[in-house]
Amino acid sequence: MDLQIALLLSQDGITNGAIYALLSLALVLVFAVTRVIFIPQGEFVAFGALTLASFQAGKTPGTLWLLVGAGVVVALLDITMALRSGASRRIPRIVGWNLVYPAAAAAVVFLLKPSEFPLLAQIVLALALVVPLGPMMYRLAYQPLAEASVLVLLIVSVAVHLALVGLGLLFFGAEGSRTPSFSDASFDLGLVTVNGQTLWVVGASLLLIVVLALFFERTIYGKALRATAMNRTGARLMGISTVMAGKLSFLLAALIGAFSGILIAPITTIYYDTGFLIGLKGFVGAIVGGLASYPIAAAGAILVGLLEAFSSFWASAFKEVIVFTLIIPVLVWRSLTTRHVEEDE
């Protein structure tokens, strides 16, 4: 191996690592706030990318129907609950978010032609279809069980993941898709050529991380999420709605997932089930951070990306083995260095 190959591999590893880092942040966020190990995280990657690809192919993405369907179910549940508890003034808001919004999205998709939109507008529309699925998923699958044990929530996650993979196959078919890259520019830096898309991925990931940091530090909602993550009961006593915190964290997780999918769709082919493996690698990163620390999780994810790139060069047949074996020394190290504290749930 010479320097050029090492640099090319590093570039590749960092590009993938940036995506894993985003996903690991989302996983840490969701776990900290709701104690859910969010296995369906990867499905948002696939849904985001494939929804965008559907627009470009001039097809109606199946995620639109999922959004409309989930919206109707959520609206029925929430309206029933609101009527039972006599809080009928909440109804307009419920109807607005769960019925009017999906209907408006459907109108945009059907009346205007998304295949003729500029790329940026297509991306915004794809995000607008996929991201609201996050809070809806929380409402349907997790909110009724919010106080259950981590294990029960994990089992629900597996179920949601399987359901979404099945829907993905139904919506997008078994074959994959690619989308055109954001820019065709490439920069010659002596030994290596850097693609424009690589810079987009790394740049957008960094930007998103900075925005998230600002959100948690500066805004009232961000602080509410952090408070819920530290102590659910305490946060509730301070008037923070845990339901709101749960929905908000799922919204962010869906946004990060769908956005990651859109970022990597020009680099690789995305299938209905690609998301799971990408999410799993983000999860390895999150484990390195003990499902608690954002910076260590991000660093762990970059490490996974680099390890993957270099192991694919040296021993391509064993790449996944090497990447997932990383988890064992990390777990041993963590269990030796951290003292176990009984959680007060």
Binding site: D12, N16, I19, A309, S312
Partner: peptide, 8 residues
């Protein structure tokens, strides 16, 4: 399901 085969 690989997203990159640069190494190979």
């Amino acid at each position: 399901a690989d997203t990159s085969v640069t190494g190979q």
